[in-house]
Amino acid sequence: MTDSTAETPGTEPPATVETPGTESPATAEAAPGLRADRVSRRTDGRLIVDGITLTLRPGETVGLLGPNGSGKSTLLRLLAGILAPSAGIVTLDGRALPRVGRRATARRIATVEQHAHTQTELTVREVVALGRIPHRRAWASASAADTRAVDAALERSGLTGRAGQSWHTLSGGERQRTQIARALAQEPRELLLDEPTNHLDIQHQLDLLDLVVSLPIATVIALHDLNLAAMYCDRLLVLREGHVVAEGTPGDVLTPSLIKRVYDVQAEVTHGPGHPAIRFLRRAPKP
């Protein structure tokens, strides 16, 4: 099972390119929380993320939008410290992530990736308990605090009744809830999710996003569905080919002209109570 809190031999160390004077006591004091400052990431000579700046505000939900290949997943991995920026810096409370340290970062930042797999026979409780790894010394047994955190995460995710069930017998929606419960067991203040609604039916999409936005933590969530982003996100960051093309509230960002520019499709946007609604227009049939 993919677990961002575990340290696996051979994984890339979360180093950051820094220049003298990048970080100072004044900066740390002025920049609480998680922040990306002009971060770029180059892979195989290709610029995947180009000069993106993002500051998370306490308790808000930020949606990352953009077509496949726009840099959403890479930006999330940069924010988590899983990847190192080629340029720029990611800070947590004003300190560069490498200076914070991998274990301390994992106590603060939890990630849920698109797919989780395991060949090991684990119960739901055992999967959720993986979230306590950053809080324990190697080989130490679970403490009372660990047990309380796992119990609370299971309850918050509606999985208490399935705690003893095998991971392999869960539906897709239940697996995603289990991964969110694992992240909650970390007791993070920042949560990063990479397209968690993929392959879920509509009911499970809404249930999962209801859970995510109910959490009193800052969240960044990559989504494909523009209507879900409009319904659930406080702020949107729209990417195209690694660049930010728009940032703001769903009502400000989701316009027909932006949807055409980024996705190359025609859409109508109506503004009812609460959030905009997007209706995509069918292309005219080719002669």
Rank of each mutant, 00 (worst) to 15 (best):
D3F: 15
L258I: 05
E12F: 04
G164T: 11
T105E: 14
L34G: 04
K286G: 04
D264Y: 13
L64A: 05
P276L: 02
N198M: 05
I202R: 13
V262I: 04
V124A: 02
A84M: 06
D207Y: 06
T61W: 05
P196N: 11
R261C: 00
G274C: 13
A222S: 08
A96E: 11
L226G: 06
V245Y: 00
Y232V: 15
H243W: 05
G94F: 08
L211D: 02
Q203P: 00
R108Y: 01
S40W: 00
R35G: 03
L236E: 05
A28C: 15
P32G: 12
L237R: 10
R240S: 13
R42G: 02
H275E: 01
E126L: 11
E60L: 08
W167N: 05
G63S: 08
I133H: 07
G21W: 13
G59F: 07
V90E: 13
T219V: 07
L206K: 09
S141L: 04
T43P: 10
Q266N: 14
A6P: 09
V265C: 00
A30I: 14
V62L: 09
L206Q: 12
L193H: 14
A110Q: 07
R57T: 15
I217E: 05
Q179C: 10
L223W: 09
P9C: 15
S157V: 00
A6M: 13
S141T: 04
S70L: 06
V124W: 03
A267Q: 07
E121H: 12
G274R: 08
G71D: 03
V127H: 02
G81M: 11
D210K: 13
R57S: 08
P13K: 14
D201H: 08
L184K: 02
G101Y: 03
G81A: 12
L97V: 09
E18G: 00
L170P: 13
R125D: 10
P276R: 07
T27S: 13
P32A: 14
A140G: 02
S73P: 01
M231T: 14
L281W: 03
R46Q: 01
P250D: 11
P287H: 09
V212E: 01
V213G: 09
T249G: 03
R283D: 13
A84D: 05
R102Q: 12
I133V: 10
T160R: 07
V245S: 06
R38W: 13
T105G: 06
R177F: 00
P85L: 04
G274M: 04
G248A: 12
Q205Y: 00
V17K: 15
R283N: 07
E12Q: 15
A36Y: 01
A31P: 01
D146A: 04
L215K: 08
A30K: 14
I202V: 09
V62N: 03
T111N: 01
L192S: 02
G63K: 00
R148Q: 10
Y263I: 00
V220M: 15
G81N: 12
L154R: 12
A138R: 14
D146Y: 01
P20G: 02
R35K: 10
L83M: 03
P13H: 14
D234V: 07
T249Y: 11
T11F: 08
